[in-house]
Computed example of a mutant assay.
Amino acid sequence: MFSGIVQNTAPVRIEARHQDLWTLSVPLTASQRDGLVSGASIALNGTCLTVTQIDDAGRAHFDVMMETLRVTNLGDLHEGDLVNVERAARFGDDIGGHVMSGHIQGQVPVVEIERPQNNCILWFGITPAQRRYLFAKGFAGLNGCSLTIGEVLDDRFNVFLIPETLNVTSFGEIKVGDRVNLEVDAHTQAIVDTLERMRAAGEL
């Protein structure tokens, strides 16, 4: 389980690139290494990955399989690219964002960036299938950040970013055309999918 509160960004290293299987590593902070063992979970760009090794330099290693490479933007990474990092929540941690699973449903492209004074508004393009799960003042996980949705139109939605989010996450360097990992609210998805199945079965 994750809270969607990104702890920092880290440059990724591509340790190996095999057919449909990559091995990535990132440096961890001292607090992230504290008590960490192989088999633990860390989210990179919101994608829940299993730690396979913690090396002597304090880097966590992860194997990224073909489905993850297909669905997420981890397959687009290059050596040195920054990724958002969050260690899985532990019992007793404050959940300052929203409960997130780290299971990515797909990607959304950045289609517009507005920068009014002291603000940053990001617009993301969406498909009709994604649109069903997005609501104004609901939330979405975007590259691992739990963010409140502003407006939702037929083919796009926006979020408003505060300076702290821009400083701590990779959103400070985002560009139009970049593709961002999307995790929708699991409760909203369950309700929408259940109602659609009931409607199709003539139960509504």
Rank of each mutant, 00 (worst) to 15 (best):
V85F: 10
N158H: 08
F139A: 12
G141C: 05
S41R: 06
E164D: 11
S31C: 11
V108H: 00
G102R: 00
I104K: 12
V37K: 10
F62L: 02
L74E: 00
T23F: 10
P163T: 13
I121H: 10
P116E: 02
D178L: 09
S170G: 15
L77D: 06
N143K: 01
C120P: 09
R33L: 15
R179D: 06
E67S: 05
V12M: 04
D55Q: 10
F135E: 05
G39Y: 11
G177K: 00
L182G: 11
H187V: 15
D20F: 03
Q105W: 11
V51A: 01
M65F: 14
I42W: 05
G35M: 09
Q53E: 14
E151R: 15
M66A: 15
V37P: 01
I126W: 04
Q32Y: 01
D63E: 14
L134P: 01
A10S: 13
D81C: 02
A57F: 07
A89W: 07
V180Y: 00
A60K: 11
R70D: 13
A129N: 06
R199L: 09
H18I: 00
E114F: 07
P27N: 12
L74Y: 01
F62R: 07
W22R: 07
D81L: 05
V12W: 07
H187E: 14
G177N: 05
V64D: 00
Q105K: 09
N45W: 00
E203G: 04
E112K: 13
H103Q: 04
D76W: 07
C48E: 06
V192N: 01
D94C: 10
H187F: 14
E86F: 05
H103E: 06
I14F: 08
V85W: 06
V71M: 11
I149C: 03
L182V: 14
H18D: 15
L195R: 07
S170L: 06
M100R: 05
D178K: 03
R90G: 14
E203A: 14
T52C: 11
G141H: 00
Q19V: 07
H18A: 04
V64P: 05
Q7V: 04
S41D: 06
R132N: 08
V6H: 02
M65A: 15
V192M: 03
Y133T: 01
G46F: 01
E112I: 01
G80W: 07
A16W: 02
Q107A: 03
S101Q: 14
I5T: 07
R156T: 04
